[in-house]
């Protein structure tokens, strides 16, 4: 999808919402850069990770383990585990990403946020615009934030003070709520949540969320999800 077409398709409200999430991601990027360098890692580590891995949770985990003196191999395995959910995301949004060469940059730009933005739109054209605008915006803001944080050091190391740790679950929740109006999806998601929460104390990060997929045993595909929602 060409850039101009993305902007023409996005309505102003959605563009503003995406912009807000990009900005928040940038601030978290600042904290990630600062934490990494503050933890004793050379500046290139958080920056290279952000460009070539580009998956926030796995990056925090990676630098956390290495900065604490853990093995880079252990950090790598932990990071890979956390990122396994992208397999399911990719299966769900492949038509949104588009075919041909777009699959390459489009796959790399896949994050929780832009997947959720895409799932929240009704038509394919809008899904596509939301996915790409979100992906590109987050990539740019996140990487700029990481460089600033890495260079500035201890400016912002704790974004919890601003409540950003509550903002991100709220962002995803707001975006998935419309889909949860479908009863079958809601049941599957609820079972998944229970499984993930029970598993969290015992399993390494990433696995509990993946186990939530077992909730799909309670999913019954049938009528188009939107129609179902209107009947309730």
């Amino acid at each position: 999808m060409p850039m101009r077409s993305i902007w023409r398709t996005l309505d102003r409200g959605l563009a503003r919402d995406i912009g807000l999430v990009c900005l928040a991601d940038g601030v978290v990027g600042v904290s990630y850069g600062a934490i990494s360098v503050g933890g004793g890692l050379p500046l290139w580590v958080p920056i290279v990770l952000s460009i070539v891995v580009f998956a926030g949770a796995s990056q925090f985990l990676f630098v956390g383990i290495v900065a604490a003196g853990g093995s880079p191999i252990a950090a790598m395995v932990a990071g890979l585990l956390v990122n396994t959910r992208h397999i399911a995301f990719g299966l769900a949004v492949s038509d949104v990403i588009g075919g041909g060469w777009r699959r390459w940059p489009g796959s790399h730009l896949m994050t929780d946020e832009n997947v959720a933005f895409a799932m929240g739109q009704d038509e394919l054209k809008q899904r596509r615009a939301a996915y790409w605008a979100g992906g590109i915006g987050i990539f740019v803001c996140w990487n700029i934030g990481v460089v600033i944080g890495g260079l500035a050091g201890s400016v912002i190391t704790d974004t919890d003070v601003f409540g950003l740790d509550a903002a991100f679950p709220a962002v995803l929740l707001a975006l998935v709520l419309p889909a949860l109006r479908d009863r079958s999806t809601r049941t599957a998601a609820f079972v998944g949540v229970v499984i993930a929460l029970i598993a969290t104390p015992f399993l390494p990060s990433g696995l509990p969320v993946l186990l939530a997929l077992a909730g799909l045993l309670f999913y019954r595909a049938g009528k188009p999800a939107l129609e179902d929602a209107h009947h309730e």
Binding site: M119, F168, L172, A179, Y219, A225
Partner: peptide, 23 residues
């Protein structure tokens, strides 16, 4: 199958909301 895959993404995102909010 497409519906199931879309539901899978929603289930994962919802579980992510719950774990990142509560744990």
């Amino acid at each position: 199958a497409q519906q199931l895959l879309a539901a899978a993404a929603i289930v994962l995102l919802t579980a992510l909301v719950a774990t990142s909010a509560l744990t």
